[in-house]
Design a protein around this nucleic acid. Structure first.
Lengths: 171, 171
DNA sequence: AAAGATTGACCACTCAATCTTA
DNA sequence: TAAGATTGAGTGGTCAATCTTT
């Protein structure tokens, strides 16, 4: 349905089904996962990603740059998000000693408690909506498919800049 | 990495890999696809979904309600988005004759031209980033996986309301 | 000049409240 | 009162411009 007269060649039914299915699943999954986690833990997935990265770091503190490599966000997004998390008391900002241009962010006690409390919820949610539903074979295949697509995206000129930006760092 | 002490049971490496892979792929894919389509066609994916639905409709016009069933959006999102598209001259709003509460939206000439011009770009982009990269077997499996997850999401109480809202309509 | 980071304007989405008609 | 739709406030994201340090 809804296949407009495509001069070259339209998507086959198989392609359309795979693409529409992927899109709808992705949207719904993200929306519901997000609502559930926020309700149960007070943290968004974005919050969790940041806090988990800090939690795993040597001294529970990381440079903004290192965080950016981990979560792979635009730098302005990271900046805005960290500012909001700081206001909520989840992280704290310090100056960077080895490079005064830099910024270092550390977990506050509240942040540590929040992320530790959220870990189980997240795990349960992932199980309920993804991993428990698929056979081991499907699970591996899904990882493989994601990987193939990711690789292609990484080669797209659009993405090159970001990769390049990040590549020039010492993490 | 970043697996915080989970009391119950943490995700296995296999699960983490599949989940993280899926999330990152999904984010990157959406972002790049979106940038590419906007650059090439001036339409976002959301725009395209709406215009394609209208284009496929009997008289190139649909009630907001029918549109909502097709794209499965929150009603406020649809309302805001249609208002913006109307401002851009892509759709036009009329009153609904059989139910004065309703709203009917139709394609403008500009809208028709835009969506017809975008069809090929969209098709190429889907091919380049998804369907060309996968074997037929992977493609079918991907559709199947999406379907399984969608089904589970649809059973979640969170989603029930939306389904119920939409179910009470005559499309 | 280039790199690390921040800022402000703007856009899109969600939630809850509202308005109108059935 | 409930259904179809709109509205406004609040949140999170992008882009481009900026500031400071290297």
């Amino acid at each position: 349905m809804a296949s407009i007269t495509a001069p070259g060649a339209a998507l086959t039914a198989r392609e359309e089904a795979a693409w529409r299915g992927l899109r709808r699943m992705q949207t719904l999954l993200a929306a519901q996962m997000s609502r559930r986690l926020i309700r149960e833990t007070g943290l968004s997935e974005a919050d969790y990603d940041i806090l988990a990265a800090l939690h795993a770091a040597p001294d529970r503190r990381l440079r903004a740059l290192a965080l950016r490599c981990t979560v792979q966000w635009e730098k302005s997004r990271l900046s805005h998000h960290l500012a909001r998390m700081q206001r909520r008391g989840l992280v704290e900002r310090e100056d960077c000693v080895e490079d005064s241009r830099g910024a270092v962010f550390g977990l506050t006690d509240a942040g540590r408690i929040a992320v530790e409390g959220a870990a189980q919820s997240r795990c349960d949610a992932v199980r309920a909506f993804v991993t428990d539903l698929l056979t081991p074979v499907q699970l591996d295949l899904l990882a493989e498919i994601s990987d193939v697509i990711m690789r292609a995206l990484a080669e797209d000129p659009e993405h090159r800049q970001i990769v390049h930006e990040l590549a020039s760092d010492t993490v």
